[in-house]
Structures are given as C-alpha cells and as structure tokens.
Simulated assay, not measured.
Amino acid sequence: MGRLEDLKRNIEEYFQSAELLFKQGLNNAAFMMYFKTLVAVADYTLWRDLRVLPDNHRERFRLLRPRYPDLYNVLSHYFPYYRDTYTKRVDERLLIAVRSDVIRLKEKVE
C-alpha cells in the first residue's frame, strides 16, 4: 500500500475514532481526534500535491499557508484549542464547529 493510501486510511481512522468519542460525550478526546483528522488531511494534501511530509506543526503551517489558505486557516484556528485540551475542557460549541470543518475538508480528499 502506498503512502497516499496510508494517509487516507489515517484520515478515516482518526475521524471514526473522533465520531465514537463524540457520541460518548468525551469532548476533549473527540476534539483531539478531530484535530488529528485535520492534520492528516493536511498531510495527505501536501503529499498528494508536493510529495512532501512536514516534520512538525510549524513546518506544516509554513507549507500550507501560501498554497492552501483555507486548510491553513482552519488548522491554525484550532491549534491553540488543541494545545489547551491538555489543561482545559473543550466547549461543546467548539467541538461542533471543528467537527463541521473536518467533515467539509475531509470531503475534498480524493
């Protein structure tokens, strides 16, 4: 199986995990998995189009910003909340918003 297919499978696995956690009311864990889904969508897109995989979030943001502004904006918007999940609780409105963005961006993966 190729790298692109592996990345696509990761997107689906993270999303399915997020959905299960969401349905169980485990908001922080669900948010973390939705964010991982966004990162996987970003990595899939970067590999598909540029044949590059970033080593960290800083490099990922640097690559996304000029080429994929929508994906960059969504990912950078949720990144501080992702970091906060280690010490704070995720608000349900934020969880619903990230879920909606994930669903919208995930549909673009083909």
Rank of each mutant, 00 (worst) to 15 (best):
V41P: 05
R62T: 09
F15V: 05
A97H: 11
R65F: 11
N28G: 14
V98M: 13
L46K: 00
E107A: 13
K36P: 08
L38G: 03
E92C: 04
L64G: 13
T87D: 07
Y86E: 15
F79G: 01
H77Q: 09
V52Q: 07
L7T: 04
H57T: 11
L26C: 11
E92L: 04
Y82G: 11
T45N: 08
R93D: 13
R48C: 08
L64T: 13
K106F: 06
A29Y: 02
P69Y: 02
V102H: 03
L26H: 08
M33I: 10
R67K: 15
I103H: 08
H57A: 06
P66V: 09
L64C: 14
V41Q: 07
R99F: 05
E110T: 06
K88C: 14
R3L: 11
K106V: 04
Y81M: 15
R104I: 08
E59I: 09
A18M: 12
I96L: 12
F31H: 10
Q16L: 06
A40T: 07
L7D: 05
D6H: 10
N73R: 07
D6P: 07
A40Y: 05
N10E: 08
V74E: 00
N27K: 15
I103M: 09
E92Y: 08
F31N: 06
K8E: 02
E13I: 08
N73M: 03
D101R: 07
R51Q: 15
P69W: 01
R62L: 06
T87P: 04
F15E: 01
D101P: 06
F22P: 01
Y78E: 06
R60E: 01
Q16Y: 01
S100K: 14
S100F: 14
Y68A: 00
D49P: 03
N10Y: 08
F61S: 09
V109A: 08
R62E: 10
Y14P: 02
E12N: 12
V102Y: 03
K88N: 12
H77K: 13
D49I: 10
L26I: 12
P66C: 07
F79A: 03
T85I: 07
R3Q: 05
E107Y: 05
V41K: 05
E5W: 04
D43R: 11
S100A: 13
L46W: 01
L53G: 09
K8W: 00
S100I: 11
H77F: 15
L71K: 02
Y86K: 13
P54L: 10
D43C: 12
R51M: 15
D49S: 11
L50F: 12
E110G: 07
P54M: 05
P69K: 01
E13V: 05
T37K: 09
V102A: 04
L26P: 05
A30T: 09
D91S: 03
R3K: 06
F22M: 00
D6F: 07
G2P: 15
T85A: 09
Y86A: 15
P69I: 00
A42W: 02
G25M: 05
H77L: 14
E13T: 08
V109Y: 02
E12L: 14
L53Y: 07
M32D: 15
S76T: 09
R62C: 03
K108Y: 06
F79D: 04
T85D: 07
D49A: 13
Q24C: 08
T37Q: 04
Y86S: 14
R9K: 02
K36A: 12
A97S: 12
H57E: 06
E12Y: 12
E13R: 11
G25P: 04
P80G: 14
Y72R: 00
E92P: 03
Y44W: 15
